[in-house]
């Protein structure tokens, strides 16, 4: 491998776009253009730009600024579980 290990780590990491379908299932509407406030550091950004760890027993979305967990999602055979404690809020802009 000609890519240093730390770079390979970063190369495997996706963003919120990669879990748009699951977010749609979880929230019932398009969410990549919704904003969230990270409860740990206060930064605000689109869910699309959260760092997505998708190769795990569940999906973990982390804040790009502070790396803490903003959202977690697990699909079981009977339910889609969402832990949004890492977000102070999640919100859509209103059509004016």
């Amino acid at each position: 491998m000609d890519v240093p290990m730390a770079e390979l780590d970063r190369a495997l990491i996706l963003d919120g776009n990669a879990v748009a379908g699951m977010l749609l299932d979880a929230f019932g509407s398009e969410m990549t253009a919704a904003e969230a406030r990270c409860d740990h550091c206060g930064s605000i950004g689109f869910l699309a730009t959260l760092i997505a760890y998708t190769r795990a027993p569940g999906i973990v979305l982390r804040c790009r600024i502070c790396q803490e967990v903003v959202l977690r999602m697990v699909e079981t055979p009977t339910a889609l579980l969402v832990d949004a404690r890492g977000a102070t809020y999640v919100g859509h802009p209103r059509a004016l």
Partner: peptide, 8 residues
């Protein structure tokens, strides 16, 4: 396989 919930 490498699975992770966060940065290494």
């Amino acid at each position: 396989p490498v699975l992770s919930a966060g940065p290494t």
